[in-house]
Design a protein around this nucleic acid. Sequence first.
DNA 1: TCAAAAGTGTTCTTTGTACACCCATGT
DNA 2: ACATGGGTGTACAAAGAACACTTTTGA
Lengths: 230, 230
Amino acid sequence: MLPEEKEIYFSVAISVSLVLFGFDGEKLRILLRKKKGEPFKGAMLLPATYVKYDESVDSKIDKLVFIHAQKEHIFVEQLKAFAKVFRNPLGRVINIAYYATVKLDDTLVKHSKNRGEEWVEYSKIPDLAFDHNEIIDYAKERLKRRVKRRPIGFYLLPEHFTISQLQKLYETALNREMDKRNFRKKIFNSQLIIETDLTDNSASKKSAKLYKFDEEKYEKLSLKGYDFLF
Amino acid sequence: MLPEEKEIYFSVAISVSLVLFGFDGEKLRILLRKKKGEPFKGAMLLPATYVKYDESVDSKIDKLVFIHAQKEHIFVEQLKAFAKVFRNPLGRVINIAYYATVKLDDTLVKHSKNRGEEWVEYSKIPDLAFDHNEIIDYAKERLKRRVKRRPIGFYLLPEHFTISQLQKLYETALNREMDKRNFRKKIFNSQLIIETDLTDNSASKKSAKLYKFDEEKYEKLSLKGYDFLF
DNA sequence: TCAAAAGTGTTCTTTGTACACCCATGT
DNA sequence: ACATGGGTGTACAAAGAACACTTTTGA
């Protein structure tokens, strides 16, 4: 590359965007915010930020995740780069999209509301600014595939959860209904969940047993290239 | 973004790189070239090119694929963006990596040789310039996953191929040995290959039947969200 | 005649799937 | 007493895994 050519190459901006999945025990949701400035003022869109030419994309996305999920060490993975020429009216912006999963509780919902953000139902995503609908569609597909092979569903649930909650999560993510008995069989066979003494009676008259994810066992198994089950 | 801020954002370059997989009937290979100019002069690396601020990434990667594969309509998919701050000494360059698969024949090997490029064995990739080893590792993982679920293996073989060739391809991509009888059973059950009248006796005294991929049937099945088998 | 790859079936195990009823309890 | 979700087992079907010998023919 000749020095005089540099400016026709080095004139692009980077942004990162985040598809943050949350599950409230009932429904799978995605965090959206309302755009404050131009372009697309007032439109809903994904959390996103520009990255300066000397900034690390990884640390930028980690910050974005922390701001919105209020937790560290959660599951984050890059989706891909969205790079269409005219996706942003300000100039050429390459968006590197990520997704992450978080346990959705009242504290976090409140935090998001205070920031003017909203946890929108998985199946009710409105038209968004830029190409963010395309990004969400891609993220949903990725989640579907991942959830089949790795127990990332567990990262979306509270520490203690009922089997019904887990099943609802899988049903939403995979977009199909499952048989209760077969589901339980599969889950218990996986040996990845531990029964606790606790119960939950928020959803039913009869109270349900609460379980937790056996992270230690999963670590061991995943070292051996373990593949999950659905 | 304020106008005076624009230059700290719009000062990044994009490049695309290509992990081109080829299979010669015996071995799975990846196309590499030798770097001519600085930086990293003389080092081996992936085919790659810079993308101008107003150029389409898609058309740039299509061109790159065509130059090296000499065919159109081959399987190409984005891997992800590689975005480390110091991956390129010229400045901040975001590399959007792709992979593609091509049928490797003598004509193409010659073409590559004329261009000073080399088809290097899948398991013998040397140390490369930039972060290209990381990109190849990522591409291998993706190929492994894809090959299990979609018959992309067929795109790597010549139009007519023997079952042994197909098995070798799967064994290399998945990095494990398979039982001949079970492999054949699975492949024939998939109903995706058609027997031809042709035979091949290049690899053995006893000649082997040649088969071809039933693309039409695959199109139909893939519309229904069909998943392959390994 | 022998080396090298082609081709071929059966058995057993594991996994997936379909399916229906009783239980505990809050209202 | 009844509605609501919690919890349980069995039988059949499909897929996966292990395993060994015969065939063809060029060298």
